[in-house]
Amino acid sequence: MRVLITGSRSYAALEMARRFKEAGWDVYTADSVRFPVCRGSGAVTQSFLLPSPRRDLRGFVDGLIRIIQRYRIDLLMPSSEEIFYIASRLGPLRNHCRVYCDALEKLVRLHNKWEFSRLAAGCRVQTPATILLTSQEDVERLEGSEKRYVLKPVYGRFAARNRFGSGDFRDVRSGKDDLWIAQEYVQGAEYCSYHLAVEGEIRAHACYQPVYRWGRASGYYFQPVEKPAIARFAEEIARKLRFTGHLAFDFIETSSGAMYVLECNPRATSGIHLLSPGELTRPFSSGWRDAPRRDGRPKMIGYAMLLRPLDRGIRGLRRWAADFARAEDVLFDPRDPWVPLYHLFSLLETVRVSLSRGVGFKEAATADIEWDGEEIEPCG
């Protein structure tokens, strides 16, 4: 069996490549950056450079089809936001191989934070009170509200543009080309989950706490936990949409035990690192029902931990050291020695894009593949 993984710059794609290789698959990867981290992995048979789907969708899809045909790919596995462009061209791509992705209209209901809040409203897990901001007047009305809100663009990632206090609301310019929502602030413990769904059925599941994180943005230390309410919610959403693809959710659990779902990412996220060997690939084989056991170890982005040993102050240093010692790094593996070098090249490439375009590092990391609801011409 042969798999083609796209978005190969991401750690999630690297996890996929290693797991598929361990399961006996031939692994091919593709991306629109020159130095994706997967390019340095010994798990990858061959890596390909494609045009940016955001700037040249036809060239991107034609390139995928050429690779699929030439190397007889059995499964196309998107990992990051290129999934939205792949979803818009499911018809042509499915003529050549299996595509682990659902229709674009389903992805929109999950990726668009307003649409997701409506989709989840009838489920057993609660959603915070959410308001769609259609004009600047809607934003201004919130400034005097007694309730505390978090403002988010309906299409956003990494919490890069979120506003957490009314003093920041003045910077928000909500309109038809860049809609925002106001979500009532809920305080409590944060949880994240990741799931693999096939035709409305959850076939792999992981839940974790982002114990260490960059401020209010992405986490870099993933402590596995069991939360039955989260697993049931994912099953409910998957059934509701009869969904096939990645599902990932963010939650807050209050001190009273109430669980709130905040948003959804219909792509691979850090929870994929917590799946046991075989659990990631099993949904694509006939023996998927035999659930492998996990070792229960936390996973981490090791260099990020090393950069922030005093994240919790001097008193937290002993806890940091203990957490570091018991976690497994998702990036560095002695059996895969070239990955660190290509990861450095990848970071330098992102820095170059950031400086040349005058955007932040996070924005530069996904600028060529992200999708913010722009019109994509439908294709059968």
Rank of each mutant, 00 (worst) to 15 (best):
V330G: 00
R308E: 14
F284W: 04
S256I: 08
A291W: 02
P334A: 12
P334L: 02
W214H: 10
E328S: 04
L275F: 14
L241I: 10
M259G: 08
E328N: 02
M259Q: 12
L262N: 06
T269W: 00
E279S: 06
F251L: 07
E328P: 00
I252S: 09
M305I: 02
R335D: 14
R335E: 13
P292N: 08
T269Y: 00
S270F: 01
S276Q: 12
V330K: 03
R282E: 09
L247E: 05
R267H: 10
A234G: 10
F233D: 03
V225Y: 14
I301Y: 03
R239C: 09
E235K: 08
E235R: 12
M305Q: 06
Q223P: 00
V211S: 00
G313I: 11
E235Q: 11
Y303K: 10
I314L: 15
T244F: 14
I301H: 04
M305T: 05
R239F: 00
G302T: 05
F222Q: 08
F243L: 08
A234K: 01
M300H: 07
A234H: 01
P224A: 11
D336G: 14
E226K: 14
A322S: 15
Y260P: 09
E263F: 11
L317R: 07
I314M: 15
C264I: 13
R242N: 15
A291P: 02
D333M: 04
D250H: 07
P210G: 08
A258T: 14
A248G: 02
I252D: 09
A238Y: 05
F284H: 08
P283R: 05
A258D: 15
L317E: 01
R319V: 05
A258M: 10
A231G: 13
R315P: 13
I272V: 15
R308M: 14
K299C: 11
L241Y: 03
T244Y: 14
T281I: 02
D250T: 12
A325T: 01
P266D: 11
G287S: 15
V261A: 07
R242Q: 11
R213Q: 10
V330Y: 04
R335M: 02
D295G: 10
E226V: 06
D323C: 05
W214P: 00
G245I: 14
F251S: 05
A248C: 10
G215M: 05
A258V: 13
D333T: 05
D336E: 06
P210K: 06
P266E: 13
P228S: 13
K299P: 03
P309G: 13
L280M: 14
P266N: 12
L331D: 01
F243T: 05
G219F: 01
E236S: 04
F324D: 07
H273F: 15
P277I: 05
D250R: 11
E253Y: 08
A229H: 04
P309F: 08
P337D: 09
